[in-house]
Every structure is written in structure tokens, then in C-alpha cells.
């Protein structure tokens, strides 16, 4: 058949995907067909969140999304968060707070934290724990991850309104 190829739009660029098997996950397509290795595959059943990406602006587990179903949608992976060598504020805060140990969960967490802070400017620690509950880290104990999120929230808040905080 002539339709064995489809095109995904990832981080603003079109990528042709050949020979994908029916039912192949977006995660496998990103890693194995397109070569974007930042999104990690750990549990491959939606439990750990290490494969988190945005599909049309919505945070999802790419291991549970069919690759072909993402045609015509805007996909953003960890590689699209910031230019290489210029970390995003969330990435920098993870470094500053010591929120990275083995690093396997970090790409998914960074995606989830960007998404969280887009929706909630000044989250409480409880809100952070609830919002990031779909991202499992086996090293840090989460304390420094929460510190990193709060650092970004405070910095963004002071950048935006002179430190009065975001009422949203």
C-alpha cells in the first residue's frame, strides 16, 4: 500500500515516519523512528510519567498514545522545551535545587512542571504533589523536586508583577 508513511509535527518540525507498526506508541515512534531520545520509556503502562509530552498542548503519556493518532497534532517533547545549551527556567531550577539524581524521570517531570506552572502560577506544596503524582522518581524522595517547582513559581511571579504573587 502507498500509505505506509505518515508525518508527525514535533517541536515545530515535520518528521516522516516510515514502517511504523499499527498500534506503535508515540513514545516508540519518537525514540526509535525519529531519534528523539529525551522522552523515556520505563513502565510503558502510564504509571511513571517518564514519557510525558504535550500533544496539542495537553500533557499525556506518550507510551499510551498511538503514534498515528498524533498526525496533524502539535507534539512538544523535552527536546522542544528549550534550545540545547540554554536550559529552561524549570530545567535550571532542577539543577540548582539538586532535584536530579539518576535523571531518568527528569524529562517527564520537567514537562509536567512546565504544564503545571502554565495552569497554576503559585501552587502549594500539596498541589504540586497532587499534580505531579503521575511522575514517579525513585531517587530523590521528591522534596528537592518540590523545591525546584517553588523556586520557578517565585521567580516567575516576581518577574511578572514585582513579587506580589499570581492570584490564579
Amino acid at each position: 500500500m502507498s500509505n505506509e508513511l505518515f508525518t508527525l509535527r514535533v517541536n515545530g518540525s515535520d518528521h516522516d515516519v516510515a514502517d511504523s507498526w499499527l498500534g506503535e506508541s508515540l513514545l516508540d515512534v519518537l525514540r526509535d523512528r525519529i531519534g528523539l531520545m529525551g522522552s523515556k520509556g520505563a513502565c510503558t503502562q502510564g504509571e511513571c510519567g517518564s514519557c510525558s509530552v504535550l500533544v496539542d498542548g495537553v500533557l499525556v503519556c506518550s507510551c499510551l498514545v498511538m503514534g498515528a493518532s498524533a498526525v496533524d497534532q502539535e507534539i512538544v517533547t523535552i527536546e522542544g522545551v528549550a534550545p540545547v545549551g540554554t536550559p529552561s527556567d524549570v530545567q535550571q531550577a532542577f539543577v540548582d535545587a539538586g532535584a536530579v539524581q539518576c535523571g531518568f524521570c527528569t524529562p517527564g517531570l520537567v514537562m509536567a512542571v512546565h504544564d503545571l506552572l502554565e495552569r497554576t502560577g503559585s501552587p502549594t506544596d500539596t498541589e504540586i504533589r497532587e499534580e505531579l503524582a503521575g511522575n514517579v522518581c525513585r531517587c530523590t524522595g521528591y522534596g528537592r523536586i518540590i523545591d525546584a517547582v517553588q523556586q520557578v513559581a517565585v521567580r516567575r511571579s516576581s518577574d511578572h508583577d514585582g513579587g506580589r504573587g499570581d492570584a490564579s
Partner: peptide, 9 residues
């Protein structure tokens, strides 16, 4: 049910 990522989908 599930996680935020799954509930979104």
C-alpha cells in the same frame, strides 16, 4: 482514577 496524564487522554 489513573494519573493526570491518563485522565487528560
Amino acid at each position: 482514577s489513573a494519573t493526570l496524564q491518563i485522565r487528560h487522554r
